[in-house]
Simulated scan of single mutants.
Amino acid sequence: MESLLKNATEILLLIFLIITFLQSGIDKVFDWTGNLNWLKDHFSDTPLRNLVPVLLGTVLLVEVSAGILCAIGLYQLLIIGESTMALYGAILSCVALLMLLFGQRMAKDYEGAKTIAVYFVPAIFLVFLLQS
């Protein structure tokens, strides 16, 4: 219980990132075609238009990896008080969000880019907390 209270902010932020990235990854796996079609249209007027399937696969891999690292980090933080994997998960979460932000900016979807920024704030805050 002491670990839970001592690390409450980190634990809550890790849960936030786990939900965010594992759900996103699961959605991409189970609706690959729908996501791919939407993204092909979204990026049709950008230099990324021919790379959409590869980029979608890359984002999927990074998101799922971030979610898994955050889950392992949550377990380690709760059970042994170690935060290294949680830090790696938080950093990879930030990388995933920067990838998504880059895509939204390339597509000139500035409203979508604002949404990514909302997710980036807690992720980068978690990096800060875990490095302290």
Rank of each mutant, 00 (worst) to 15 (best):
M1C: 10
L4R: 07
L4Y: 15
L5M: 11
L5W: 11
K6C: 03
T9C: 11
T9F: 11
T9G: 07
E10Q: 15
I11K: 02
L13Q: 05
L14N: 05
I15R: 08
F16Q: 10
L17F: 11
I18T: 02
I18E: 01
I18K: 02
I19R: 06
T20I: 05
F21P: 00
I26W: 12
D27R: 14
K28M: 14
K28G: 02
K28V: 12
V29H: 11
F30E: 09
F30P: 00
F30D: 04
D31F: 12
W32C: 07
G34Q: 08
N35R: 11
L36E: 08
N37D: 13
N37Y: 10
N37F: 09
W38P: 01
L39D: 00
L39F: 10
K40M: 12
D41R: 15
H42C: 06
H42L: 12
F43P: 07
F43Y: 15
D45P: 01
D45Y: 11
P47H: 13
L48W: 09
L48T: 05
L48C: 00
R49L: 04
R49Y: 06
V54R: 12
L55C: 01
T58C: 13
L60H: 04
L60W: 08
V64R: 05
V64D: 02
S65Q: 07
S65L: 14
A66E: 06
A66G: 10
A66S: 15
G67V: 06
I68M: 03
I68P: 00
C70V: 02
C70P: 01
C70I: 03
I72G: 03
G73L: 04
Q76H: 03
Q76L: 08
L77M: 11
L77Q: 03
L78D: 08
I80R: 10
G81K: 04
M85W: 03
G89H: 06
A90F: 01
I91R: 11
C94L: 05
V95A: 14
A96V: 07
A96M: 11
L98W: 12
M99G: 14
M99S: 05
L101Y: 09
F102C: 00
G103E: 08
Q104C: 13
R105V: 14
A107T: 11
K108G: 03
K108F: 07
Y110N: 13
Y110R: 08
A113W: 01
K114H: 05
T115Y: 05
I116L: 07
I116Y: 02
I116M: 11
V118E: 09
V118H: 04
F120C: 07
F120L: 15
A123W: 02
A123C: 09
A123H: 03
I124W: 00
I124K: 07
I124R: 05
I124M: 09
F125D: 00
F125N: 04
L126M: 08
V127I: 13
L129H: 03
L130W: 01
L130F: 08
Q131L: 15
Q131W: 06
S132E: 11
S132Q: 12
